[in-house]
Amino acid sequence: MATVETSVLQTITPVTHDLGDFKVNRTLPGRQRTMVGPFIFVDEFGPARLPAGRGMDVRPHPHINLATVTYLFEGAIEHRDSIGSHAVIEPGAINLMTAGSGIVHSERSPQEQRADGASLYGMQTWLALPDGQEEIAPAFDHVPGDALPLVEDDGASARVLMGTLWGASAATPQHSPTIYADILLGAGGAIPIDSGADERAVMLVGGETELDGQPLDLFALYLLRPGHDARLSSAAGGRLMLMGGQAFPTRRYVFWNFVSSSRDRINQAKEDWKALRFALIPGDDQEYIPLPEVPLTVSYP
């Protein structure tokens, strides 16, 4: 029988940021590891119910050389960006925003959800763009839940969010080979994890689950050994995210909301944001997040 030592290459404990109304658990980037496949930023937020009249308000801020992926378990987020995109994401759908050469966006709780207090529970991840595609044109894709395949078997279901898993392929665009899935295990349910990707990791986001018979800690990121045929199971029921893809051959640096293979490019983006040279967001151009002196998100060293 496999043990956690044979299944798991590395376990990354989250750093928790208490934002007052809700908490964010961050596993990437960190001192232990920067990336898993193209995933270079992994945040889990909630579950939380905000006070009546309140909502989440992430003011306009910039990104370069990456793609953001937003996925919700509960609640809704209204997205606006500087190329004119406007969409409300709800559970089961994907928002993929490709920053490329540069984009500004905001994320807020829809107004109609604020009276009773908005609920927040979900994932925000960033994907580094591959060599030769870091400066592509910005783009935005909203993929509804009914365009994402649902695989069901043995008391388990898995919604394929990106890439191909269990023989099913998602419609979500990808810039490099990527896998991403939302796995629900019923009581007594089990599911094997495809072993084809270069790098794979799982995160328990609710309930209880075992990996090859070993219990998982909530919100920790477990990097699986390459080629290992792992199996997830749950006696009482649980929910997990599976993520990964092709390993990157060249390093990526992170500073605040900027990701790039070039430190000089990041420094240029910092100066451009301070000088207000990024495009504005139609319908949300009255405020912005200033460049921090010491950001919470950085690459090491």
Rank of each mutant, 00 (worst) to 15 (best):
S262Y: 00
D154R: 14
S299Q: 02
L19N: 07
N65M: 10
L72Q: 03
A181Q: 06
S195T: 13
V42I: 09
L204A: 03
L165I: 12
L184W: 04
G100M: 07
V205W: 09
A247V: 11
Y222L: 01
L280G: 07
S85A: 15
L276N: 14
P301R: 00
M162N: 01
G206C: 00
T3H: 11
E5W: 08
S101E: 13
M243A: 10
G92D: 06
L150P: 06
D194P: 08
I191V: 13
A197K: 06
R114F: 03
S262R: 05
G117M: 12
A201W: 04
P62S: 02
D212R: 02
A99M: 11
A158W: 07
D212E: 06
I136L: 12
F22W: 05
G75R: 01
I289P: 01
E44F: 13
T70R: 09
F39Y: 10
D284Y: 06
P192T: 14
R80S: 05
H86P: 06
D141K: 10
S106H: 05
D18L: 03
A48M: 08
E107F: 12
R159L: 00
W256C: 11
V205Y: 05
I289C: 07
N95H: 02
G163S: 06
L232R: 09
V205R: 08
V143C: 04
G145N: 08
A137W: 04
P51L: 03
Q174A: 13
F278E: 03
I289T: 12
E152Y: 04
H17K: 14
G207I: 09
V36D: 07
D18I: 01
P14M: 02
I183D: 05
A137V: 14
F45S: 11
F41C: 07
H86A: 09
P282Q: 06
D141A: 14
L66D: 08
P173W: 12
L224C: 13
L296R: 12
A275C: 01
V202S: 11
G237D: 07
Q214F: 13
